[in-house]
Design a protein around this nucleic acid. Structure first.
Lengths: 126, 126
DNA sequence: CTAAATGCAAACTATTTGCAACGAT
DNA sequence: ATCGTTGCAAATAGTTTGCATTTAG
């Protein structure tokens, strides 16, 4: 594992935010000002292919990177922000339905986040 | 509803494939050779925002457009192809866990599709 | 010493936007 | 006459690639 790979893995897997490549790049630059964005992308892809980090894709937004630890995502339909949520594990049920062909799953739940809800309420009251 | 909107809605909602904007564009051109890709994107977005079609986003691939009818997706981790699958409906369970804030959910199941499985097997036997 | 990792710039893909012309009410 | 729709070209965002250079085992 190279310097950057290790560093990027650390950033992604220790964060509870859902960082874009750009954010990770900014973070990494604090310690290694010389690093370029392409290197970040290359390492993110390597880590993803090695199954060490997750990539989270939501229509219209840049991909986010996330720690592996099992959890699902809430996605605000208003502002696009992600939040973690631990829902019932579907693995067994899916394995039952699909057999050994099952690899993994990705469950996203759409909602309106508390901040957006509040904002919308305020706008309506006026 | 405009000509193109209607046409595009028809293409997407009558197809069991998971079409990209590009494919829809090609389809539409057969009937309306003058249409441009930007118009397709604009109409797809309008339809999506109106809740009339789905947009399916998988990391690294162009977005796919799909009919609304409730179903989940199998995604091949090898070739990226999508397939429909009807899994147990999670709506009630999620509403129970999240309350009225719940809007909808998106469940993708990753696997290796039959074609890729076969291809991989053949390669191994050699 | 060698192979892999990095920097850099350029390429590329998917998608969106601004604006002028057009078309339907 | 007006307002939304379209064509067009250009812009943008996100991401990948090729190649020369550097770095690490």
């Amino acid at each position: 594992m190279t310097r950057y790979e290790k560093e990027i893995y650390g950033i992604v897997s220790n964060s509870y935010e859902h960082l874009t490549a750009e954010k990770i790049f900014e973070e990494l630059k604090k310690k290694y000002p010389g690093v370029v964005l392409a290197t970040v992308y290359n390492n993110l892809n390597k880590l993803w292919e090695a199954g060490m980090i997750r990539k989270v894709s939501v229509e219209g937004m840049a991909d986010r990177y996330d720690r592996m630890e099992k959890h699902d995502h809430l996605v605000c339909r208003h502002c696009g922000k992600l939040a973690d949520i631990g829902l019932e594990d579907l693995t067994l049920s899916l394995k039952g339905q699909l057999g050994e062909f099952f690899l993994s799953y990705d469950l996203k739940v759409f909602y309106i986040c508390p901040e957006c809800r509040e904002r919308l309420n305020n706008e309506n009251e006026r």
